[in-house]
Design a protein around this nucleic acid. Sequence first.
DNA 1: ACAAATATGGAGCGATCGATCCATATTCTG
DNA 2: CAGAATATGGATCGATCGCTCCATATTTGT
Lengths: 204, 204
Amino acid sequence: MARPREFDEAKVLEAAGAVFWAKGFEATSTRDLTECTGLTHSSIYAAFGDKRGIFMRALQHYLDSILLERIVRLETTRSPGQAIVGFFEEIVDRSLADAQHRGCMLVNASLEVTEDNAELQSYVATETSKIEQFFFRCVVAGQEKGEIDSELNAENHARHLLSVLLGLRVLARIRPDKDLLVGLVGPALAALGLTWRARGRGRS
Amino acid sequence: MARPREFDEAKVLEAAGAVFWAKGFEATSTRDLTECTGLTHSSIYAAFGDKRGIFMRALQHYLDSILLERIVRLETTRSPGQAIVGFFEEIVDRSLADAQHRGCMLVNASLEVTEDNAELQSYVATETSKIEQFFFRCVVAGQEKGEIDSELNAENHARHLLSVLLGLRVLARIRPDKDLLVGLVGPALAALGLTWRARGRGRS
DNA sequence: ACAAATATGGAGCGATCGATCCATATTCTG
DNA sequence: CAGAATATGGATCGATCGCTCCATATTTGT
């Protein structure tokens, strides 16, 4: 047919995503994108349409490769309750390990959504729903398994865990303190009769 | 001395704050600010220095007039436990009443913080600490009063309530759904042995 | 009334924004 | 090899950005 792409799309999306993640959509210029990806304007616009397009693709790539992978992995290798515990373990660890304190790309993107970007708006709403549904499945399965109190309202507890997660990610950006992040998760787990595995930080 | 200011500083900060709140710092132009305040560039720059200056002042005005007022009012008119409940009641009500779904200005500002703006970074960290300390005082006072289980770790529960609040405000922006917002608070209150006052939405 | 001081209105600065265009280079089909 | 198709490099577009400057208007102290 014609000349093939010379760049690795996944790597480009990761490079672009890293900048969007750290600086936000508005504060990232197309020049930033050419520098971090090593591509020219032409190549970027030909491949992704416009700035919004590459942002959406980068966000999607991030969610698919990090978040969805984590959900699938935990759900297939752990008990329902320990999947919830493990989820928060990983989020806390990653939040503390990020020297840039970027928080969560999905959360950051969520707060840059304005009414004139319906596509991003519905996308972030859908993705947060997926996380909520993961928590919901874990709670219900945990209840069926006897790991979690069956008297609890699984729907509301899933919503609750989602809000704790989002709040945690906000705090990870502005106050990346281990005691804070670890401590806040304790009561959220305790509400389901769960605890950290090995951290042993006393009562929650 | 000289010619006095013709504008009401509080009203200008509210008008500017409303735009920053809805669009974010980067996406708000100085032209937006002249239009929403009715002032000229000259007046704005003479009074507030630069765009970052008026943003900081507007954020500060918002927090002092809304958030601090709420904390003081609830803490002086309600029992510790009911202050916590009332806080979430008001936040949920305000989140649902805002047709623009702007969420929380402090949360929005938090996620626009980058490493090159240390002033804003430390300011939002301090303000979130104030909220955390409010929760902490409520939990401790509730425990002394017998309203809240004394076995609970007040520090971690304050952190937990803070994260639920921040998560709620994120969701208020992207999924302003009553069942979601009301539902997620239930388990957070239940963790302290508290419940909604009159909503009566069943088990949490 | 006069001078000092500050606010206001508005033009317009250089820089940068997102985006486009086109000539050139490269790789495919036939 | 010929020609279609796509990618790349780079110049550059008009618009908008945050911000500054200056002439003018208005108020206060003397």
